[in-house]
Every structure is written in C-alpha cells, then in structure tokens.
C-alpha cells in the first residue's frame, strides 16, 4: 500500500462491499421500527418520532409463542454444546492419550462424519426418532446435533490435547491421581480455550438450522426460533410490520452474539477447516 491512490481504491471497494453486505440487514431492522405507511412511503429513511412504531413487535411477542421458541433454541443449542464438548473432549483424550488396538481405525471411523453430511441419513433418522418416541422433542434435536458435531470437535480438541506437555499428566499420575481425575482436573481446564472455539462454531449452525427442526420437531410447541420464525412469516406474510419485526427479532440476538464472539468464531473456522 505504498501509493495513496491504490490505498483509496482498495478502501473504496471494501467499503462498497461492506455496504452491500450490511444494507439488507440494516434495511430490515430500520423499517421494523416504523409505521406501515412509512415502510412503504420512505423505506430508506431512518425512523423519526412521527414514523416510529412498535406495532410489529407487539404482534410478534403478543400473538405467537416466539418467547418459548427462543427458550427451545437456547435449550437445544445449549444441550448440543454441552454434550458435544463433554463427550468430544473425553473421546479426544482417549484417542490421543491411550494407544489401544483399534485407535487408528476408530479415528478414521469418526473422521467420516467431518465430510459426509448427516442430513443424507434423514430418512432413517426420522424412523429412529419415531421408534424412540422422541418426535417433537428437543432431546431428538440434541442427540442428532451432537452426533453431527462430535467428529469435528473430537478432531480439533485432539490437536489441543496433544499439545499439553506430557509432564503435566505424568506428574498427576505420580501423585496417585486416577486417569479420570487427570482428565477432569488437569486436562479439561487446560483445553478451555479450544472448547470455547468449538462451542462458538457449534452454536451458529445449530441455532440457524431449519432442516432438523422441520423434520423432527415441527409442531407441538417445540419449534426452534428459526423454524418458529419461518412458520410465523408464512402466516403473516402480508403484515409487513409483523414480518419485519419477526426478522429483526431473529437477527438482533445473533448479531450481538456474533460481535461478542467474532474472534473465537473466526479462529474456530480457520483451525477447523484448514488443517
């Protein structure tokens, strides 16, 4: 960037692209705070005291079960993150620390799930969930999402566990700690940063997923927020206030989380996929 002219050109292009990326999002959020007339009359104007209105939000939070859909999403995502991290870290520990007969084979077996999308097994997943009597439950979602996210989480956590100095574990063994204590009291606290990374990028796709909520928990009040919003939008398609507010209701929390966690997320994306 020696010449100022090319620096300006690069900034110009980046600013234009950033505007293109943000424009639709800002447009929706901005108009969700306006009265119907202003939405159509001056869509590009910011809400002013005379055009400001929360009527759409009243509808979203009044007429529907959006709040309980949020709780469903939080439960499903939280449960998935918990089990993915716990079982993933346990398996990663065993695969890196203990050399047993089927180690390599098991690692390969688990690696299949990194590349092959679990969605392709949906027909049998539904049959299984029906058989287990778990249809329209969040348990079904947590189980499937955990299975979906375990392979990559094991893969990433293994790399971090392998970097823990051997002395630390050996010291624990010399002090007479059991293998279980070594894992839970020495290893687990040490891989917390890696677990944060895995948690953040498990969270986003699970929160945003439409497919499995649609298949496994489409009715009965156990809809996730993504599916709930989709169904809500289908019902209120002509009520622009309600549609724009419903969209904003779904966008804003994710944006806040994203801004808070963006560093972990981008680190996670790169460490997960490039290696």
């Amino acid at each position: 960037m020696r010449k100022p002219a090319s620096a300006i050109a690069v900034h110009g292009i980046l600013i234009l692209y950033t505007a293109l990326a943000l424009f639709p999002i800002i447009l929706v959020i901005m108009n969700s705070f306006k009265a119907r007339k202003a939405i159509f009359g001056a869509p590009l104007a910011l809400p002013t005291p005379s055009t400001f209105s929360l009527i759409g939000y009243d509808k979203v939070f009044g007429d529907s079960s959006i709040v309980s859909y949020y709780l469903n999403s939080i439960t499903a995502t939280g449960g998935t993150i918990f089990f993915t991290l716990l079982f993933g870290a346990m398996a990663a520990w065993a695969l890196t620390e203990y050399k047993f007969r089927w180690n390599t084979l098991l690692t390969l077996f688990l690696a299949v799930g990194i590349m092959v999308p679990i969605r392709l097994g949906s027909v049998a997943i539904i049959q299984l969930i029906v058989e287990l009597n778990l249809i329209n439950t969040l348990t079904a979602l947590i189980l499937v999402y955990t299975a979906q996210n375990l392979p990559l989480s094991i893969f990433i956590l293994s790399e971090f566990i392998a970097q823990i100095p051997k002395d630390l574990r050996e010291a624990g063994r010399c002090d007479g700690l059991s293998e279980y204590s070594i894992f839970f009291y020495i290893v687990l606290p040490l891989i917390r940063p890696a677990m944060a990374t895995v948690a953040v990028f498990t969270m986003i796709p699970v929160w945003n997923d439409l497919w499995f909520p649609l298949l496994l928990a489409p009715t009965g009040g156990k809809q996730t927020i993504t599916l709930g919003i989709q169904q809500f939008l289908g019902q209120y398609i002509t009520d622009w206030n309600a549609v724009l507010s419903a969209l904003s209701t779904a966008i804003i929390p994710v944006l806040i989380l994203y801004v808070v966690f963006s560093r972990q997320l981008i680190r996670g994306l790169t460490s997960g996929a490039v290696k």
Partner: peptide
C-alpha cells in the same frame, strides 16, 4: 476406554453412521 469413548462413539454411530447406512 469404554468410559471415555463410549458416549461419543455410541451417539455418533446411532445417530449418524447407522442412519446413513440404513438410508
């Protein structure tokens, strides 16, 4: 080994590999 690997392998096999094969 069963304690550490069991949960992950069972969930992964039952809800990911088995459905793929069954499909």
């Amino acid at each position: 080994l069963v304690f550490f690997l069991g949960p992950a392998v069972v969930i992964y096999t039952v809800f990911s590999i088995y459905p793929l094969l069954a499909t």
